[in-house]
């Protein structure tokens, strides 16, 4: 009898530790990913020269030039453009879903957003390649493979992220805030702009950071519409190459220092993503803090 009890205790202890261990796999995975991206990327970066690598404008492996400035600029430009589109369409749509939309409209719009979120990036890329690129070429001239095409495709792709999270944030604004504002005679639009949106600010910020992370890391959709020329874009109709494209595009035939330069490109991308991650968590933590204060009856900042 005693023995059985002991055995049970041991089993229960072991299982609990097994659960803990599984949870720690996530930590381990993140560490291993970080370490191996750095370990295989940094040597190449130092061999080329950090300044030479980050601020060099010329990328020509056959001649021994490995500068990724053009790609950093392209990635940033594409992401900022996409964020402008994503926020410009996404946040109003979220306001619509959260506050204004009649039930039937929600019933159409919400599944539509879900569907958009589910479409794989290659499909967006192909859509961009056969529909958007010719359209740009016909309307504005040029080849159509351009920064503009990337911006539009990425803007569409981050829409669901921005809409869903912003809607949640707007819905979380206490009813009393909105009613108070309306009761004081403010119009609905004034209430949105002065009360709902500022209260939902951190949630909306979080949605934008998540969207930006998605945009800057997107590869397969971008590779099909970018044109892939490593140059600093003079206009949004120029062909560009992003950091992600650089990694995916040349890996299959790269070797030696060329391959190390591609790994080093990964380091830059990884660093950008981790900075975004930290920012996101900080924003979310602050939001949780505000909510706690609000619940405790303390005036929100």
């Amino acid at each position: 009898m005693q023995k059985k009890k002991l055995l049970k205790k041991i089993a229960s202890y072991g299982v609990e530790k097994l659960f803990l261990l599984s949870a720690c796999v996530a930590v381990l995975a993140l560490l291993v990913i970080g370490v191996y991206i750095l370990v295989s990327g940094l040597p190449g970066m130092f061999k080329i020269g950090v300044g030479q690598f980050l601020f060099g404008e010329k990328w020509s492996p056959s001649e021994g030039y490995y500068g990724i400035l053009t790609m950093i600029i392209a990635s940033l430009a594409a992401t900022i453009g996409a964020a402008v589109i994503g926020v410009g369409i996404g946040v109003p749509t979220a306001v619509f879903l959260a506050d204004i939309a009649p039930k039937w409209a929600v019933r159409i719009l919400r599944p539509a957003v879900e569907l958009l979120a589910g479409i794989p990036s290659v499909v967006y890329g192909y859509f961009g390649l056969v529909v958007l690129v010719p359209f740009i070429s016909n309307t504005f001239g040029g080849a159509g493979n351009s920064l503009l095409a990337i911006i539009i495709i990425l803007g569409i792709m981050i829409l669901p992220t921005i809409i869903n999270l912003s809607e949640l944030a707007i819905r979380a604004v206490p009813r009393s805030f909105v009613e108070g504002s309306l009761g004081l005679g403010a119009s609905r639009m004034q209430t949105f702009l002065r009360v709902s949106l500022p209260s939902a600010k951190s949630g909306i910020t979080a949605s934008i950071i998540l969207g930006v992370g998605r945009a800057i890391g997107e590869t397969m959709a971008v590779i099909l519409v970018a044109g892939n020329t490593p140059q600093i874009p003079g206009s949004i109709l120029d062909s560009v190459r992003t950091l992600t494209i650089n990694i995916a595009f040349e890996m299959s035939y790269a070797s030696g220092i060329h391959r190390e330069a591609l790994f080093a490109t990964g380091v830059v991308l990884f660093a950008i993503i981790m900075i975004l991650n930290f920012t996101l968590q900080a924003v979310l933590n602050r939001k949780a803090g505000t909510r706690k204060r609000r619940r405790a009856g303390v005036k929100p900042r």
Binding site: A26, V27, A29, L30, V32, I33, Y36, I37, S40, L210, G213, R214, I216, G217, E218, T219, T244, I247, A248, M251, F263, G266, L269, F270, I273, M274, L276, N277, L280, Q281
Partner: peptide, 21 residues
């Protein structure tokens, strides 16, 4: 934090890591 960070890592980085590792 690790789970959230993993969720934020783009697939190309997973691909690069998988290739290296």
């Amino acid at each position: 934090f690790s789970i959230e960070s993993l969720a934020g890592i783009p697939s190309i980085i997973y691909g690069l890591f998988g290739y290296i590792f």
